[in-house]
Design a protein around this nucleic acid. Structure first.
Length: 552
RNA sequence: GGGCCCGUAGCUCAGCUGGACAGAGCAACGGACUUCUAAUCCGUAGGUCGCAGGUUCGAAUCCUGCCGGGCCCA
């Protein structure tokens, strides 16, 4: 909507000052923080002052006269060194309230999916253990970003890449097999670099219960290990899927690394690159010329012993994505993988797509603190807090919200004591309480007056004359705009402050004014506004994957 | 040695495609429940935006250098 307002302003001003047309790119329409600075403000006078060779404030006054004639602009003021502050009319806002009430938890969502088709890959945890907090953060950021893009009009496919091939899985099998054997032979050696977590023993016990004979009858130990690996992998993948579902995270595609080998996709991708003349042999290995596309050095695809590198599989994986025809793809990765990006980007560019086709959002580390001390997490040592444990203690909503409050680019210190003990202090309750309070008012309206808010009813919004009411209307009117901006900038963490802001305005309103008043027209108007607030909150909650609770 | 990220109030962090006195939550202090839920509201206090230069009418925001913390690669 800001875009529309900017167009309007530029058009009006250009009638007298055609110079604005050259400055269009730089002109901004902002939402000022302070109420007295108007509903919207623009820097247009600062920009025009140069070509017109006049002081910003002089230009601003001329523009004020122009804009004031329009009926959508109730009042125009010049402030500071040359800011132009515009107050919008109430009718202008009313349309948005109606829309909010109608659209409920999808207020402002783009119905036409014409922004293109994109793929967002996230979590992609190795199926060698339960999800930990780092995965949780990636899951929240990835799923919320997907929701945002979907809201903004993209067709979004959410994808999980399963690393079900290679050394890690073999090690998993070896670990489980050792635990299995230890049930009868406590001295059976456990692999030095094996997975030490308790869950490995659980899996071994299950195998012992159901598959004991089968495993013992295998003559070749490697065969038994492979069997254990396959079993453990499926077991853990199921756990991961369950955890994610409980965490409000769904995927459209579960892509198996192993399937790439099984269907010859790795060779296919290498063949494709070979035809482009980007592959060569050196020292018995096969290399890809990633340096052509900005990488530090060329990378090995097939080692001299004939085995594929992980990189080769990843290229095949992205070649597959490339062929699926996305407008662009986003990978959500742990920040420790950032060194890997240049080579993958180079490989992808070798397919013939522009650099912007692949984007990566790096999630910085989650550091866990307990009793004021950092808990070092290591999957191998088995010492870590799982995502499931945290969800069980704190609740899905609180965890999602907490992970979302921080920019994924910054390190996140997670104080486990605080999260577990003082869950009441969690900011998520603040926003949920706002929703619960609205529901409570609606219930009371029905009990006291038999007034069913859920049915359509007439309301005269012009009766809403309080300052806070105006602020809320404005907030609601600009919300879809704000959400879409957040989607474009790919900064899901901003949703929490947007939500907090709206909730804060509501709580303020609630405390200072009564909704169920004697004047029925005023009551209707206020309930209508409340219904619009509820829609706005629900819309935000849905994007963040948080439950709109009815009572607290 | 090279690269990426971070350095804003006591703590955890927003703000950073330059703009109006730098914001929030928690913690601290003082007030507000006979009312639609006080998990709320109102107020007070707290900051050389790591340091130093530069660009600009204007820099927490852009550029350069340095310092400190984390991660990756060699």
């Amino acid at each position: 909507m800001r875009k529309e307002l900017k167009e309007k302003i530029v058009n009006l001003v250009s009638k007298d000052f055609k110079e604005v047309l050259d400055l269009k790119e730089k002109i901004k329409v902002d939402l000022p923080k302070e109420e007295k600075h108007g509903d919207i403000s623009t820097n247009i006078a600062f920009l025009l002052s140069k070509p017109l060779k006049k002081k910003p404030i002089e230009v601003a006054n001329k523009i004020k006269d122009i804009l004031e004639k329009d009926k959508d602009f109730e009042k125009v003021e010049v402030a500071g060194a040359g800011f132009i502050n515009i107050f919008l009319s109430k009718d202008f806002y009313f349309e948005f309230l109606k829309k909010a009430v109608q659209e409920n938890d999808e207020y402002g969502k783009e119905k036409e999916k014409n922004k293109g088709k994109i793929n967002i890959e996230f979590v992609s945890a190795n199926p060698t253990g339960p999800l930990h907090l780092g995965h949780g953060r990636g899951a929240v950021v990835g799923s919320t970003l997907s929701n945002l893009k979907d809201y903004a009009g993209y067709v979004v496919e959410r994808e999980f890449y399963i690393n079900d091939a290679g050394r890690q899985i073999y090690l998993l099998g070896k670990s489980v097999y050792a635990r299995f054997r230890q049930i009868e032979e406590p001295d059976y050696p456990f692999p030095e670099d094996g997975y030490k977590g308790e869950y490995i023993k659980d899996i071994a016990k299950e195998l012992y219960q159901y598959e004991r004979e089968k495993i013992y009858s295998m003559l070749d130990e490697d065969e038994a290990i492979e069997f254990c690996a396959e079993y453990a992998k499926n077991y853990l993948l199921d756990e991961i899927k369950k955890d994610l579902k409980e965490f409000g995270v769904e995927f459209d595609i579960w892509f198996s690394e192993k399937s790439l080998y099984e269907h010859g996709k790795v060779d296919e991708a290498i063949e494709f690159l070979k035809k482009k003349g980007l592959v060569y042999e050196k020292e018995g290995a096969l290399w890809l010329k990633t340096t052509v596309y900005g990488d530090d050095k060329d990378r090995v695809l097939i080692r001299s012993d004939g085995t594929y590198t992980y990189f080769a599989a990843d290229i095949a994986y992205h070649y597959d994505k490339y062929k699926r025809g996305y407008d662009y793809i986003i990978n959500v990765w742990g920040a420790d993988h950032h060194g890997y990006f240049p080579r993958l980007k180079a490989a992808v560019m070798a397919f013939g797509v522009p650099e912007e086709w692949i984007r990566v959002i790096f999630i910085q580390m989650v550091k866990l603190f307990r009793n004021g001390k950092e808990v070092k997490m290591s999957k191998r040592s088995g010492e870590f807090i799982t995502l499931r444990e945290l969800i069980n203690e704190v609740g899905k909503d609180a965890v999602r919200y907490m992970f979302l409050t921080k920019d994924s680019n910054t390190h996140l210190n997670f104080d486990i004591d605080l999260a577990l003990k003082q869950s009441n202090e969690n900011p998520v309750y603040y926003v949920q309480y706002a929703h619960a309070r609205i529901m409570s008012v609606f219930k009371e309206a029905k009990q006291r007056f038999g007034f069913d808010v859920e049915e359509d009813f007439k309301a005269d919004v012009s009766l809403l004359k309080e300052d806070i009411e105006r602020q809320i209307m404005k907030e609601i009117a600009f919300l879809p705009d704000l959400i879409k901006e957040t989607a474009e900038k790919e900064q899901p963490h901003k949703l929490t402050s947007i939500t907090h802001n709206l909730a804060s305005k509501f709580h303020n309103y609630y405390y200072h004014y009564k909704f169920l008043v004697e004047d029925e027209n005023l009551m209707r108007a206020r309930l209508f506004l409340l219904k619009a607030i509820r829609s706005a909150l629900r819309t935000l909650f849905k994007l963040m994957g948080i439950t709109p609770v009815e009572r607290m």
